[in-house]
Amino acid sequence: MDAQLKKGMLDSLVLAALLEKDGYGYSLTESIGQVVPIAETVLYPVLRRLEEQGLLDTYPVEHGGRLRKYYRITPEGRRRLVSGLDELKELRRLIDRIVEEVERNGQTR
């Protein structure tokens, strides 16, 4: 899948990553980076925007003599992610269809 296409789904990727457990800036960059090749500086604006939209919030945790900021998904963020599920499935269906067609007919000429 095209890296930029994945990048367009960054908001969803971040929220989905926070579904399982809360994360902090570096850990999120690492986990998202395993799926999408993004620059380290791309994530902060996304986190900030999602926070402002009320889809995630933050809380501090003391870690080794300093405070670490953790991000967690809000009920609204969870709701929005779930409500977009049908659209994501529709997108996957379209992509599957394209892949299927290309695999079946792409090599015939």
């Binding site: 095209d2 930029q4 296409l5 367009g8 789904m9 908001d11 969803s12 659209e87 529709e90």
Partner: peptide
Amino acid sequence: AGMASAATRATGAGTF
């Protein structure tokens, strides 16, 4: 690339 991204957004998926 941005247009590709915009196309993804236009489906309503992946962004808010």
